[in-house]
Design a protein around this nucleic acid. Structure first.
Lengths: 200, 200
DNA sequence: TGCGTTACACAACAAGCGTTACGTAAAGTG
DNA sequence: CACTTTACGTAACGCTTGTTGTGTAACGCA
């Protein structure tokens, strides 16, 4: 047996370099050479651990999903206050710190390419539906009374697209959407969503 | 004087081809050759009317802004019902028909590149601020009472990011966000925003 | 101490890109 | 009818990209 290297470790190092490149130059600035340069190695090493560029992108994407899911799964299952619980989970979708900002950048970059890639679209579709379902449960738990049908779905959707829009704007123009503003808007949106429970 | 051609017309034809390419292959699939092929001409003609690719992109962007602004300016200045007026204007930001869907695709594509381009960021910044200001006026007019300070801004922001998120999701996965759903969510969001007017 | 396998650097390749230069056809003007 | 200017097709250039192959150093095992 020849010299042994931790493949998982190497792959995650390269993947980290990829994230950094995307955060600095966007997906269109992502090349094997730029990744290699950022990782401090040669393209040979990159291709040694990832068959081709598609495999590299796929890994970065799966890492992204994993990180997001892990962060949410790490949350306490039940909160004393259902509204606080809802807020805590929803907040995970916002780029409120360095880590989540980086994730949001990668997320939005991949999201746009989704439009022209059927395979990515299917992945996104199920992931998005699952996210909506999770929030639906939490919103229902936080609502004061029994929601009317349809009414609930629209409230949840309003929350979901609000989160996406918030993240998108924060990624595009961070100075115009600082964490403080994001939090206030989310609080307000939760107020609005949970406030009345009647057909207007 | 030699043979004369309507430059404006030609440029708009090429620009239309560019939009089509972007809608089909995204910004990363946009090349002079693909634009020429879609327009049914050669790259020579494209470069004849646009000095370089940057000029072509800039023109397409300005056309986008122009179209969006025109559509909103074409609305009646005053509506009998201020809420209906607000809805009508807000709806213009949603990809509810073919035309607006195409615009939204181009919009989202450009939006992402904004992150790594300082010049584009400044353009976006003023445009976005102006949009927020316009909606603020309309929301204030549609609110039942006098809004509390801060409160109003958060409500408007919640609406703005909701619109962006709605558009983004509709562009990414049109089947999951059909026009009907978009309209319902927007209606609901307006309900929520205009409903209560007290600090919760 | 060799031996064989793995890890990786390096270079070459074709393909596709934006750009540029050149050639030609067409049409208004004298 | 020339003549000149514009309109545009064509092709070549240099560059960057992903991919692939070859060479070499390192290290576990015999």
């Amino acid at each position: 047996m020849p010299r042994q290297v931790d493949h998982v470790q190497r792959r995650s190092e390269i993947s980290a370099a990829l994230w950094q490149v995307v955060s600095e130059s966007g997906l269109e600035g992502l090349t094997l050479r730029s990744v290699a340069a950022t990782a401090g190695c040669t393209t040979g090493m990159v291709t040694h651990y990832f068959r081709d560029k598609k495999a590299l992108l796929a890994h970065a994407r799966s890492v992204m999903h994993r990180r997001m899911a892990d962060r949410i799964d790490a949350m306490p299952l039940r909160h004393s206050d259902p509204r606080a619980h809802l807020y805590a989970v929803a907040e995970q979708a916002l780029p409120l710190d360095e880590e989540r900002h980086l994730e949001a950048v990668v997320w939005s970059s991949f999201l746009l390419t989704t439009r022209t890639d059927q395979e990515l679209l299917r992945e996104h579709s199920v992931s998005h539906a699952s996210w909506v379902r999770r929030l639906t449960t939490l919103v229902r738990a936080a609502l004061p009374g029994e929601p009317e049908p349809g009414n609930l779905e629209e409230r949840v959707r309003a929350l979901v697209v609000c989160l996406d829009g918030l993240a998108l704007n924060a990624v595009t123009d961070p100075d115009a959407y600082p964490p403080d503003l994001q939090r206030r808007v989310l609080e307000r949106q939760l107020d609005l969503i949970l406030e009345g429970n009647r057909t207007l």
